[in-house]
């Protein structure tokens, strides 16, 4: 397991268990791609973002945009564990009329800062937020987490060009580089490499980290520094389905529907503290 930075590993385990439970109860949801971003979200929400959980709309808060909206069970579980809303809400995820929809909806869910779901649009939204917030006395940071497959959307690169053109150094992009997408490996479907060089060529400051190692995330952020005038990107190397052995790099691309048995099995693994 990753070194425990201020109890983050414990939070991550709790969040993973909630993700498995909520998708298990709903019998629907993108489990593997939610699990791959749990550690990144836990790091952001417990260590990095400046937030007020009792005042979700605090104007000077840092903003978070989830580009890969299908990973929202991880975001919902994080927000519930950070007390943005009662944890009971998690068990009605994806039910008719529920607060927690299959994709994040701004205004519907406390703590959700931006809409998400149609891939490739998150960075554009984050650009707009960063442009709007940059005139404030204390400039809030804007964080955006995208899936690697999402980089295949052309509009993403319009946005990447824009972030650099406007010197949005309050913007930090995290790329969940699990190397997988719906129908297989990203490099087989539509190759993305060299990811780092692409961002460098677009005028970004780029670092890499182990997306399941909190210290590695911290180091990458420190290496990026204040990056004067450049948007920052951290390519986080992750494992699809991280934390549940039979999901990790599952060849089905994590599309497995979680039956009662596998949910129990996954929860038992997570109770033990994972790998």
């Amino acid at each position: 397991m990753t070194p425990d930075l201020n109890g983050l590993a414990e939070h991550a385990s709790a969040v993973r268990r909630d993700v498995v439970r909520m998708i298990g109860v709903a019998r629907s949801g993108h489990l593997a791609s939610s699990l791959s971003i749990v550690d990144l979200l836990v790091w952001l929400y417990w260590e990095v973002l400046s937030l007020r959980t009792d005042e979700p709309s605090w104007e000077d808060r840092d903003r978070f945009v989830l580009g890969k909206g299908h990973g929202c069970p991880a975001l919902y579980a994080v927000l519930a564990n950070r007390s943005f809303f009662p944890r009971e809400e998690l068990w009605s995820y994806r039910r008719l009329g529920a607060m927690l929809q299959g994709f994040p909806e701004v205004r519907r869910t406390p703590g959700v800062d931006a809409p998400g779901g149609s891939l490739g649009q998150g960075l554009g939204l984050a650009n707009g937020l960063a442009l709007a917030l940059r005139d404030r006395a204390s400039v809030p940071s804007v964080f955006c987490l995208v899936g690697d497959g999402e980089l295949q959307e052309g509009a993403f690169w319009e946005s990447a060009m824009t972030s650099a053109h406007f010197s949005l150094d309050s913007l930090l992009l995290l790329v969940d580089r699990d190397g997988r997408q719906m129908e297989g490996a990203t490099e087989d479907i539509m190759s993305l490499e060299p990811v780092r060089d692409k961002f460098l060529a677009f005028g970004w400051a780029v670092e890499e980290c182990d997306g399941h190692d909190f210290a590695s995330m911290e180091e990458a952020r420190a290496r990026l520094g204040s990056r004067r005038g450049k948007p920052g990107c951290i390519v986080a190397n992750t494992v699809l389905g991280k934390g549940v052995s039979f999901l990790e790099n599952d060849p089905s691309g994590g599309r497995m529907v979680l039956g009662r048995d596998s949910m129990d099995k996954a929860l038992r693994e997570l109770e033990k503290g994972g790998d």
Partner: peptide, 25 residues
């Protein structure tokens, strides 16, 4: 300071507009 030239990229322009509106613009 209130004008944003987005270049020839209408998709990003609309996403950026949406982001701007999230703060009350």
């Amino acid at each position: 300071e209130r004008y944003f030239e987005m270049g020839i990229g209408e998709q990003n322009m609309i996403s950026v507009a949406a982001g701007l509106s999230l703060t009350g613009k």
